[in-house]
Design a protein around this nucleic acid. Structure first.
Lengths: 217, 217
DNA sequence: CTCGCCCTTGACCCGTGGGTCAACCGGGTG
DNA sequence: CACCCGGTTGACCCACGGGTCAAGGGCGAG
């Protein structure tokens, strides 16, 4: 394939099929262990067709990552109430992220694969970096109004992103047999306790009841 | 090679050379992108020799991982004062881990590579699982004596291990231009704030001054 | 009907890199 | 000195999987 051609409806559908099957195989046996032949076989098409839609395996992978990054972003934005106080917004974002990561576990298992290749390192970085920027901005506000511990905002932001990511990882890899809702709530508590400048504030933020938004398919 | 033969001093040295050069190359360009030929070239030996010492690339990798896991464990044990209160021990362990991970950044960049292959997944699991077990035990004690928030101990333990890992990761990948000592101290504070059942206790534990143990080469 | 554009096929090419092997070196030992 | 054994060499083999390509199908427009 050259760059981005126009695809007919059929073409787009076929492409999505390939993406889906690839994601499943990657999650199941890893990126390196998945041959292009496996992907096309799973989708029930000939090998040559792969190259009609993608330049190569890596390009497909990038598309998968990008596609997913946008979805997560949307889920976060949807869960956050922009009028709430900063710490609460962070909690909302964190819980939404955990929920999202759990329901798209395959994709995230996939994301971790990125590390295998230096070339993917910055791809991945980009993904968390956006989230981190959002959180850092909220933290700045929280520090200014005294609700968040007075530490460098960017460092704290790493902690939030990291916590979400790690709990997501542990849950995904089956080491934490726990309903998603409980996990999300727990992570929310953890993050709030880590950031709050004192107990009163932590309790206040944790008192708010969050109704879990359904994850759109 | 068959299994574990006896190696002469020269043999052991050669093997270590291969391990070292492999680690460097893996860190530099990733696991999948490092050919066995690259490794032997870097070590200045012939390709056939590789198979005298290792069954294949994966076997070498496993050995590298194992070797490193043990070192980290030792560093943790050395930093922890077994007579101190649980929360403080956790802090000591966390700070030591961060320091260790920073000084052996190459090895840990490497560890992340494990994800690329399903076969490595449980290897990695094993590594964190030990640490997590240690922490969980300390947390149990802390919950019992009221110094740690009353949440499931194993969940909290995941948070500690995760935080250490993530900050290590971010620092290693150059996104946090910060002296190791400051980072370690910060992570210590983060962990303590996340776990402490109230401010008094957090302050008490954070008041203790930790003198950074030098990392043995 | 027929032209042309997407889409689809599967045989084929070929570089890469894992793994083997027969031969060779050199120091320690009887 | 002869032998042995751990260590070392690099040419060679070859399967695997990435990427190509010429040709064929089918559907919509004109």
């Amino acid at each position: 394939m050259s760059d981005d051609r126009r695809l007919t409806a059929q073409g787009q559908e076929r492409k999505d099929q390939l993406l889906d099957h690839a994601a499943e195989l990657f999650a199941e046996r890893g990126y390196a262990e998945t041959r292009i032949l496996d992907i096309v076989k799973a989708a029930g098409v000939a090998k040559g067709l792969f190259y009609w839609y993608f330049e190569n395996k890596e390009a497909l992978f990038r598309e998968l990552v990008e596609q997913n990054r946008l979805r997560l972003r949307r889920a976060q934005a949807q869960a956050i109430d922009p009028t709430a106080e900063p710490l609460l917004q962070i909690r909302q974002g964190a819980e939404a992220s955990v929920r999202y990561m759990a329901s798209y576990a395959n994709f995230f298992a996939l994301l971790e694969v990125e590390n295998m290749d230096k070339a993917f390192a910055d791809e991945r970085t980009k993904g968390t970096e956006v989230h981190r920027g959002d959180v850092a901005a909220l933290i700045e506000v929280g520090i200014a109004d005294g609700s968040i511990r007075d530490e460098p905002a960017d460092l704290l932001a790493f902690g939030v992103v990291g916590t979400v990511g790690y709990y997501g990882h542990f849950h995904r890899t089956g080491r934490m047999p726990l309903p998603v809702d409980e996990l999300a709530a727990f992570v929310g508590r953890w993050v709030v306790c880590s950031l709050a400048s004192d107990e009163q504030i932590a309790r206040r933020v944790l008192a708010v009841r969050l109704d879990p938004e359904p994850i759109p398919a």
